[in-house]
Write a protein that binds this DNA or RNA. Structure first.
Lengths: 203, 203
DNA sequence: GAAAGACCGGACAAATCTGTCTTGTTTTTT
DNA sequence: AAAAAACAAGACAGATTTGTCCGGTCTTTC
Protein backbone atom coordinates (compact mmCIF):
# COMPACT_ATOMS: atom_id res chain seq x y z
CA UNK A 1 0.00 0.00 0.00
CA UNK A 2 2.53 2.55 1.17
CA UNK A 3 6.00 2.34 -0.27
CA UNK A 4 7.36 5.74 0.66
CA UNK A 5 9.64 4.32 3.30
CA UNK A 6 9.47 7.15 5.77
CA UNK A 7 6.86 5.54 7.98
CA UNK A 8 7.39 2.59 10.23
CA UNK A 9 3.93 1.40 9.21
CA UNK A 10 5.26 0.85 5.70
CA UNK A 11 7.91 -1.66 6.77
CA UNK A 12 6.73 -5.19 5.97
CA UNK A 13 6.11 -6.74 9.39
CA UNK A 14 7.40 -10.23 10.14
CA UNK A 15 7.12 -10.98 13.82
CA UNK A 16 4.00 -10.33 15.86
CA UNK A 17 5.78 -7.46 17.56
CA UNK A 18 6.43 -5.81 14.22
CA UNK A 19 2.82 -6.34 13.17
CA UNK A 20 1.68 -4.57 16.32
CA UNK A 21 4.15 -1.76 15.82
CA UNK A 22 3.11 -1.31 12.21
CA UNK A 23 -0.60 -1.27 13.00
CA UNK A 24 -0.11 1.02 15.97
CA UNK A 25 2.01 3.42 13.91
CA UNK A 26 -0.65 3.69 11.25
CA UNK A 27 -3.56 4.16 13.63
CA UNK A 28 -1.79 6.46 16.09
CA UNK A 29 -0.54 8.73 13.33
CA UNK A 30 -3.76 8.82 11.33
CA UNK A 31 -6.45 8.77 13.99
CA UNK A 32 -4.63 10.10 17.03
CA UNK A 33 -3.08 8.46 20.06
CA UNK A 34 -5.91 8.78 22.56
CA UNK A 35 -8.54 8.02 19.95
CA UNK A 36 -6.89 4.74 18.97
CA UNK A 37 -7.83 1.85 21.21
CA UNK A 38 -5.84 -1.28 21.90
CA UNK A 39 -8.52 -3.42 20.28
CA UNK A 40 -8.34 -1.45 17.04
CA UNK A 41 -4.58 -2.04 16.95
CA UNK A 42 -5.10 -5.74 17.63
CA UNK A 43 -7.70 -6.01 14.87
CA UNK A 44 -5.42 -4.35 12.34
CA UNK A 45 -2.37 -6.30 13.43
CA UNK A 46 -4.22 -9.61 13.58
CA UNK A 47 -2.56 -10.53 16.84
CA UNK A 48 -3.75 -11.50 20.31
CA UNK A 49 -4.06 -9.10 23.17
CA UNK A 50 -1.78 -11.15 25.39
CA UNK A 51 0.93 -10.84 22.76
CA UNK A 52 0.76 -7.06 22.86
CA UNK A 53 1.01 -6.95 26.63
CA UNK A 54 3.83 -9.46 26.47
CA UNK A 55 5.92 -7.04 24.43
CA UNK A 56 4.70 -3.75 25.91
CA UNK A 57 3.83 -3.16 29.53
CA UNK A 58 1.17 -0.56 28.73
CA UNK A 59 -0.32 1.55 25.99
CA UNK A 60 1.91 4.38 27.11
CA UNK A 61 4.98 2.25 26.51
CA UNK A 62 3.64 1.26 23.10
CA UNK A 63 3.18 4.92 22.20
CA UNK A 64 6.76 5.64 23.25
CA UNK A 65 8.02 2.71 21.19
CA UNK A 66 6.04 3.83 18.15
CA UNK A 67 7.37 7.37 18.40
CA UNK A 68 10.90 6.08 18.74
CA UNK A 69 10.55 3.81 15.71
CA UNK A 70 8.80 6.45 13.61
CA UNK A 71 11.55 8.92 14.39
CA UNK A 72 14.30 6.47 13.58
CA UNK A 73 12.70 5.37 10.30
CA UNK A 74 11.97 8.91 9.24
CA UNK A 75 15.48 10.14 10.01
CA UNK A 76 17.03 7.22 8.14
CA UNK A 77 14.91 8.06 5.12
CA UNK A 78 15.38 11.82 5.38
CA UNK A 79 19.13 11.88 5.89
CA UNK A 80 19.49 9.10 3.32
CA UNK A 81 17.74 11.27 0.76
CA UNK A 82 19.94 14.20 1.70
CA UNK A 83 23.12 12.16 1.47
CA UNK A 84 22.15 11.01 -2.01
CA UNK A 85 22.10 14.58 -3.28
CA UNK A 86 25.36 16.17 -4.28
CA UNK A 87 26.27 19.69 -5.23
CA UNK A 88 27.93 22.47 -3.28
CA UNK A 89 27.36 22.90 0.47
CA UNK A 90 24.71 25.57 0.03
CA UNK A 91 22.67 23.44 -2.35
CA UNK A 92 22.86 20.44 -0.07
CA UNK A 93 21.66 22.44 2.90
CA UNK A 94 18.74 23.84 0.93
CA UNK A 95 17.92 20.33 -0.26
CA UNK A 96 16.19 19.68 3.04
CA UNK A 97 13.19 21.49 1.59
CA UNK A 98 13.24 19.44 -1.59
CA UNK A 99 13.17 16.27 0.50
CA UNK A 100 10.43 17.79 2.63
CA UNK A 101 8.37 18.38 -0.50
CA UNK A 102 8.73 14.72 -1.44
CA UNK A 103 7.54 13.85 2.05
CA UNK A 104 4.57 16.20 1.84
CA UNK A 105 3.63 14.81 -1.57
CA UNK A 106 3.02 11.31 -0.29
CA UNK A 107 -0.75 10.65 -0.23
CA UNK A 108 -0.36 9.11 3.21
CA UNK A 109 1.36 12.19 4.67
CA UNK A 110 -0.02 12.91 8.11
CA UNK A 111 2.36 15.54 9.42
CA UNK A 112 5.18 15.03 11.89
CA UNK A 113 4.30 12.40 14.52
CA UNK A 114 6.20 14.36 17.16
CA UNK A 115 4.47 17.63 16.43
CA UNK A 116 1.17 15.80 16.49
CA UNK A 117 1.97 13.98 19.72
CA UNK A 118 3.05 17.12 21.56
CA UNK A 119 -0.06 18.87 20.27
CA UNK A 120 -2.27 16.09 21.57
CA UNK A 121 -0.74 15.53 24.99
CA UNK A 122 0.92 18.87 25.56
CA UNK A 123 0.83 19.92 29.18
CA UNK A 124 2.43 17.63 31.65
CA UNK A 125 3.52 14.77 29.41
CA UNK A 126 7.26 15.09 29.64
CA UNK A 127 7.99 11.71 28.06
CA UNK A 128 6.41 12.74 24.78
CA UNK A 129 7.91 16.20 24.87
CA UNK A 130 11.38 14.78 25.52
CA UNK A 131 11.01 12.29 22.68
CA UNK A 132 10.14 15.19 20.39
CA UNK A 133 13.12 17.12 21.69
CA UNK A 134 15.48 14.24 20.99
CA UNK A 135 14.13 13.96 17.49
CA UNK A 136 14.53 17.65 16.81
CA UNK A 137 18.03 17.59 18.25
CA UNK A 138 19.08 15.19 15.51
CA UNK A 139 17.88 17.67 12.93
CA UNK A 140 19.44 20.63 14.69
CA UNK A 141 22.78 18.87 14.92
CA UNK A 142 22.76 18.18 11.21
CA UNK A 143 21.72 21.75 10.45
CA UNK A 144 24.50 23.14 12.63
CA UNK A 145 27.03 20.92 10.91
CA UNK A 146 25.94 22.23 7.53
CA UNK A 147 25.97 25.79 8.78
CA UNK A 148 29.52 25.36 10.02
CA UNK A 149 30.58 23.88 6.68
CA UNK A 150 29.02 26.87 4.95
CA UNK A 151 30.88 29.28 7.14
CA UNK A 152 27.78 30.91 8.57
CA UNK A 153 28.72 33.43 11.30
CA UNK A 154 25.93 32.61 13.79
CA UNK A 155 25.50 28.86 13.50
CA UNK A 156 22.91 28.51 16.23
CA UNK A 157 20.68 31.22 14.83
CA UNK A 158 20.77 29.76 11.34
CA UNK A 159 19.84 26.36 12.72
CA UNK A 160 16.95 27.93 14.65
CA UNK A 161 15.79 29.71 11.52
CA UNK A 162 15.80 26.50 9.52
CA UNK A 163 13.93 24.75 12.31
CA UNK A 164 11.20 27.39 12.22
CA UNK A 165 10.94 27.07 8.45
CA UNK A 166 10.79 23.30 8.61
CA UNK A 167 8.12 23.21 11.30
CA UNK A 168 6.11 25.89 9.56
CA UNK A 169 6.25 24.09 6.24
CA UNK A 170 5.20 20.81 7.85
CA UNK A 171 2.19 22.36 9.56
CA UNK A 172 1.14 24.39 6.53
CA UNK A 173 1.42 21.37 4.26
CA UNK A 174 -0.46 19.19 6.72
CA UNK A 175 -3.32 21.66 6.96
CA UNK A 176 -3.68 22.54 3.30
CA UNK A 177 -2.40 19.29 1.76
CA UNK A 178 -0.32 21.52 -0.47
CA UNK A 179 3.28 20.29 -0.74
CA UNK A 180 4.48 23.51 -2.37
CA UNK A 181 4.84 25.15 1.04
CA UNK A 182 8.22 23.41 1.05
CA UNK A 183 9.26 25.70 -1.80
CA UNK A 184 7.96 28.76 0.04
CA UNK A 185 10.11 27.79 3.01
CA UNK A 186 13.05 27.07 0.72
CA UNK A 187 12.96 30.56 -0.76
CA UNK A 188 13.15 32.08 2.69
CA UNK A 189 16.03 29.78 3.58
CA UNK A 190 17.84 30.94 0.48
CA UNK A 191 17.55 34.61 1.28
CA UNK A 192 18.47 33.89 4.90
CA UNK A 193 21.70 32.26 3.78
CA UNK A 194 22.36 35.06 1.30
CA UNK A 195 21.85 37.53 4.10
CA UNK A 196 24.09 35.97 6.72
CA UNK A 197 26.82 35.14 4.21
CA UNK A 198 26.72 38.63 2.75
CA UNK A 199 27.21 40.05 6.23
CA UNK A 200 30.16 37.73 6.64
CA UNK A 201 31.80 39.06 3.49
CA UNK A 202 31.41 42.58 4.77
CA UNK A 203 33.18 41.84 8.01
CA UNK B 1 -5.86 33.21 37.33
CA UNK B 2 -5.20 33.92 33.69
CA UNK B 3 -5.54 37.51 32.61
CA UNK B 4 -3.87 37.38 29.23
CA UNK B 5 -7.17 37.71 27.41
CA UNK B 6 -6.34 35.56 24.41
CA UNK B 7 -8.04 32.44 25.72
CA UNK B 8 -11.74 31.92 26.06
CA UNK B 9 -11.03 30.11 29.33
CA UNK B 10 -9.84 33.41 30.79
CA UNK B 11 -13.15 35.19 30.28
CA UNK B 12 -15.03 35.37 33.60
CA UNK B 13 -18.00 33.04 33.09
CA UNK B 14 -21.45 34.14 34.12
CA UNK B 15 -24.08 31.74 32.79
CA UNK B 16 -23.81 27.98 33.10
CA UNK B 17 -23.14 27.81 29.39
CA UNK B 18 -20.14 30.10 29.77
CA UNK B 19 -18.87 28.10 32.71
CA UNK B 20 -19.00 24.96 30.57
CA UNK B 21 -17.30 26.70 27.67
CA UNK B 22 -14.57 28.07 29.92
CA UNK B 23 -13.88 24.73 31.57
CA UNK B 24 -13.98 22.88 28.26
CA UNK B 25 -11.60 25.38 26.67
CA UNK B 26 -9.08 24.96 29.42
CA UNK B 27 -9.22 21.17 29.50
CA UNK B 28 -9.40 20.61 25.76
CA UNK B 29 -6.47 22.91 25.10
CA UNK B 30 -4.29 21.66 27.95
CA UNK B 31 -5.06 17.95 28.07
CA UNK B 32 -6.35 17.24 24.56
CA UNK B 33 -9.80 16.81 23.09
CA UNK B 34 -10.13 13.04 23.17
CA UNK B 35 -8.43 12.75 26.53
CA UNK B 36 -10.85 15.17 28.18
CA UNK B 37 -14.07 13.53 29.33
CA UNK B 38 -17.44 15.16 29.80
CA UNK B 39 -17.34 14.47 33.53
CA UNK B 40 -14.03 16.31 33.92
CA UNK B 41 -15.54 19.33 32.22
CA UNK B 42 -18.59 19.13 34.48
CA UNK B 43 -16.44 18.91 37.59
CA UNK B 44 -14.41 21.94 36.60
CA UNK B 45 -17.42 23.93 35.51
CA UNK B 46 -19.48 22.97 38.55
CA UNK B 47 -22.55 22.36 36.43
CA UNK B 48 -24.90 19.45 35.87
CA UNK B 49 -24.64 17.02 33.02
CA UNK B 50 -28.15 17.73 31.81
CA UNK B 51 -27.23 21.39 31.47
CA UNK B 52 -24.36 20.58 29.16
CA UNK B 53 -26.49 18.41 26.95
CA UNK B 54 -29.16 21.08 26.99
CA UNK B 55 -26.79 23.55 25.37
CA UNK B 56 -24.77 21.16 23.21
CA UNK B 57 -26.13 18.15 21.43
CA UNK B 58 -22.90 16.19 21.74
CA UNK B 59 -19.26 16.40 22.71
CA UNK B 60 -18.43 16.93 19.07
CA UNK B 61 -20.63 20.01 18.99
CA UNK B 62 -19.01 21.28 22.18
CA UNK B 63 -15.57 20.87 20.61
CA UNK B 64 -16.71 22.84 17.58
CA UNK B 65 -18.14 25.58 19.80
CA UNK B 66 -14.94 25.78 21.84
CA UNK B 67 -12.79 26.04 18.74
CA UNK B 68 -15.02 28.75 17.34
CA UNK B 69 -14.91 30.75 20.59
CA UNK B 70 -11.17 30.27 21.05
CA UNK B 71 -10.57 31.48 17.52
CA UNK B 72 -12.78 34.49 17.92
CA UNK B 73 -11.27 35.50 21.26
CA UNK B 74 -7.75 35.02 20.03
CA UNK B 75 -8.29 37.02 16.85
CA UNK B 76 -9.93 39.85 18.78
CA UNK B 77 -6.91 39.98 21.08
CA UNK B 78 -4.34 39.55 18.33
CA UNK B 79 -5.70 42.09 15.88
CA UNK B 80 -6.47 44.43 18.74
CA UNK B 81 -2.82 44.33 19.78
CA UNK B 82 -1.76 44.92 16.19
CA UNK B 83 -4.13 47.84 15.77
CA UNK B 84 -2.73 49.47 18.91
CA UNK B 85 0.73 49.61 17.39
CA UNK B 86 1.55 52.48 15.09
CA UNK B 87 4.51 53.14 12.87
CA UNK B 88 5.01 52.74 9.14
CA UNK B 89 3.39 49.91 7.17
CA UNK B 90 6.45 47.72 7.26
CA UNK B 91 6.82 47.99 11.02
CA UNK B 92 3.16 47.21 11.57
CA UNK B 93 3.34 44.11 9.41
CA UNK B 94 6.40 42.88 11.26
CA UNK B 95 4.66 43.59 14.55
CA UNK B 96 2.79 40.30 14.18
CA UNK B 97 5.90 38.62 15.54
CA UNK B 98 6.12 40.98 18.50
CA UNK B 99 2.54 40.15 19.40
CA UNK B 100 3.29 36.49 18.88
CA UNK B 101 6.16 36.76 21.37
CA UNK B 102 3.78 38.22 23.94
CA UNK B 103 1.48 35.29 23.31
CA UNK B 104 4.30 32.75 23.65
CA UNK B 105 5.45 34.39 26.87
CA UNK B 106 2.23 33.70 28.72
CA UNK B 107 2.81 30.88 31.24
CA UNK B 108 -0.45 29.31 30.14
CA UNK B 109 0.57 29.20 26.47
CA UNK B 110 -0.45 25.87 24.99
CA UNK B 111 0.09 26.44 21.29
CA UNK B 112 -2.55 27.15 18.67
CA UNK B 113 -5.79 25.28 19.40
CA UNK B 114 -6.38 24.76 15.70
CA UNK B 115 -2.95 23.35 15.02
CA UNK B 116 -3.39 21.09 18.02
CA UNK B 117 -6.87 19.99 16.96
CA UNK B 118 -5.85 19.17 13.41
CA UNK B 119 -2.84 17.30 14.78
CA UNK B 120 -5.06 15.25 17.07
CA UNK B 121 -7.91 14.41 14.71
CA UNK B 122 -6.16 14.78 11.38
CA UNK B 123 -7.41 12.27 8.87
CA UNK B 124 -11.06 12.32 8.06
CA UNK B 125 -12.28 15.02 10.41
CA UNK B 126 -13.29 17.70 7.95
CA UNK B 127 -15.18 19.80 10.49
CA UNK B 128 -12.04 20.47 12.52
CA UNK B 129 -9.90 20.99 9.45
CA UNK B 130 -12.39 23.47 8.01
CA UNK B 131 -12.56 25.37 11.29
CA UNK B 132 -8.77 25.64 11.21
CA UNK B 133 -8.94 26.79 7.59
CA UNK B 134 -11.43 29.52 8.41
CA UNK B 135 -9.23 30.71 11.25
CA UNK B 136 -6.16 30.81 9.07
CA UNK B 137 -8.08 32.60 6.34
CA UNK B 138 -8.66 35.52 8.70
CA UNK B 139 -4.92 35.79 9.21
CA UNK B 140 -4.13 35.38 5.53
CA UNK B 141 -6.62 38.07 4.59
CA UNK B 142 -5.00 40.48 7.02
CA UNK B 143 -1.53 39.58 5.78
CA UNK B 144 -2.55 40.11 2.17
CA UNK B 145 -4.01 43.50 3.02
CA UNK B 146 -0.76 44.55 4.64
CA UNK B 147 1.25 43.18 1.73
CA UNK B 148 -0.86 45.22 -0.69
CA UNK B 149 -0.39 48.34 1.41
CA UNK B 150 3.35 47.71 1.38
CA UNK B 151 3.39 47.38 -2.39
CA UNK B 152 4.74 43.86 -2.38
CA UNK B 153 4.82 42.45 -5.92
CA UNK B 154 3.61 38.90 -5.17
CA UNK B 155 1.03 39.39 -2.43
CA UNK B 156 -0.03 35.76 -2.19
CA UNK B 157 3.52 34.47 -1.87
CA UNK B 158 4.37 36.96 0.84
CA UNK B 159 1.27 35.95 2.79
CA UNK B 160 2.21 32.30 2.41
CA UNK B 161 5.72 33.06 3.63
CA UNK B 162 4.41 34.83 6.70
CA UNK B 163 2.02 31.97 7.37
CA UNK B 164 4.92 29.50 7.33
CA UNK B 165 6.92 31.71 9.69
CA UNK B 166 3.98 32.12 12.06
CA UNK B 167 3.16 28.40 12.20
CA UNK B 168 6.80 27.52 12.59
CA UNK B 169 7.29 29.99 15.42
CA UNK B 170 4.18 28.72 17.19
CA UNK B 171 5.29 25.11 17.04
CA UNK B 172 8.89 25.86 17.99
CA UNK B 173 7.79 27.99 20.95
CA UNK B 174 5.29 25.37 22.05
CA UNK B 175 7.90 22.62 22.02
CA UNK B 176 10.76 24.49 23.62
CA UNK B 177 8.78 26.96 25.75
CA UNK B 178 11.15 29.57 24.36
CA UNK B 179 9.27 32.69 23.22
CA UNK B 180 12.29 34.09 21.39
CA UNK B 181 11.50 31.98 18.35
CA UNK B 182 9.15 34.83 17.49
CA UNK B 183 12.21 37.03 16.98
CA UNK B 184 13.89 34.39 14.85
CA UNK B 185 10.81 34.34 12.65
CA UNK B 186 10.70 38.12 12.61
CA UNK B 187 14.23 38.40 11.29
CA UNK B 188 13.36 36.13 8.38
CA UNK B 189 10.25 38.16 7.70
CA UNK B 190 12.36 41.29 7.59
CA UNK B 191 14.78 39.96 5.05
CA UNK B 192 11.90 38.52 3.05
CA UNK B 193 10.32 41.97 2.81
CA UNK B 194 13.68 43.53 2.01
CA UNK B 195 14.12 40.97 -0.73
CA UNK B 196 10.76 41.32 -2.44
CA UNK B 197 10.75 45.11 -2.16
CA UNK B 198 14.30 45.35 -3.53
CA UNK B 199 13.25 43.31 -6.54
CA UNK B 200 10.34 45.68 -7.01
CA UNK B 201 12.69 48.65 -7.11
CA UNK B 202 14.76 46.93 -9.76
CA UNK B 203 11.79 46.40 -12.05
C1' DG C 1 13.32 -35.11 20.82
C1' DA C 2 12.45 -32.15 24.58
C1' DA C 3 12.24 -27.77 26.68
C1' DA C 4 11.26 -22.94 26.10
C1' DG C 5 9.27 -19.25 24.44
C1' DA C 6 6.12 -16.97 21.15
C1' DC C 7 1.54 -16.76 19.87
C1' DC C 8 -3.75 -17.30 19.49
C1' DG C 9 -8.48 -16.81 21.05
C1' DG C 10 -11.31 -15.26 24.15
C1' DA C 11 -13.28 -14.74 28.71
C1' DC C 12 -13.10 -11.56 32.29
C1' DA C 13 -12.63 -7.50 35.57
C1' DA C 14 -12.91 -2.80 36.70
C1' DA C 15 -13.03 1.53 35.32
C1' DT C 16 -14.51 5.09 32.21
C1' DC C 17 -16.89 6.87 28.33
C1' DT C 18 -21.02 9.43 26.13
C1' DG C 19 -25.59 10.29 26.46
C1' DT C 20 -30.56 9.91 28.58
C1' DC C 21 -33.77 10.52 31.95
C1' DT C 22 -36.14 11.86 36.33
C1' DT C 23 -37.11 14.86 40.07
C1' DG C 24 -37.02 19.03 42.09
C1' DT C 25 -35.21 23.84 42.74
C1' DT C 26 -34.00 28.33 41.22
C1' DT C 27 -34.19 32.07 38.12
C1' DT C 28 -36.12 34.70 34.58
C1' DT C 29 -39.85 36.37 31.83
C1' DT C 30 -44.51 37.72 30.97
C1' DA D 1 -48.34 36.20 40.68
C1' DA D 2 -48.01 32.71 37.15
C1' DA D 3 -45.80 30.47 33.40
C1' DA D 4 -41.51 29.17 31.33
C1' DA D 5 -37.07 28.40 31.03
C1' DA D 6 -32.55 27.30 33.15
C1' DC D 7 -30.21 24.61 36.29
C1' DA D 8 -28.70 20.97 40.06
C1' DA D 9 -28.02 16.30 41.48
C1' DG D 10 -27.61 11.96 40.36
C1' DA D 11 -29.28 7.39 38.84
C1' DC D 12 -28.95 4.74 34.87
C1' DA D 13 -27.92 2.43 30.33
C1' DG D 14 -24.93 0.73 26.96
C1' DA D 15 -20.85 0.81 24.92
C1' DT D 16 -15.88 1.06 25.25
C1' DT D 17 -11.58 1.47 27.67
C1' DT D 18 -7.11 -0.73 29.51
C1' DG D 19 -5.23 -4.60 31.37
C1' DT D 20 -5.16 -9.65 33.34
C1' DC D 21 -5.52 -14.39 32.99
C1' DC D 22 -6.23 -19.09 31.30
C1' DG D 23 -5.75 -22.95 28.09
C1' DG D 24 -4.08 -24.62 24.03
C1' DT D 25 -1.02 -24.45 19.71
C1' DC D 26 2.86 -23.52 17.08
C1' DT D 27 7.77 -22.63 16.32
C1' DT D 28 12.26 -22.23 17.56
C1' DT D 29 16.32 -23.75 20.02
C1' DC D 30 19.40 -26.62 22.33
Amino acid sequence: METAGWSFAAIPPKTARDKIMSAASYLFCNHGFSATGIDAILDRAGTAKATLYHHFRSKEELIAAVLEAEGETWRAWFFGQLAARGGPERTRMLAVFDVLEDWFSDPGFYGCPFINAVAEFDTGNDAVRQAAERHKDHLLTWLKGQAVALGVPDVAETARSFAVLIDGAIVAAQHTRDPSFARTARRMAEIHLDDVLKHRLRA
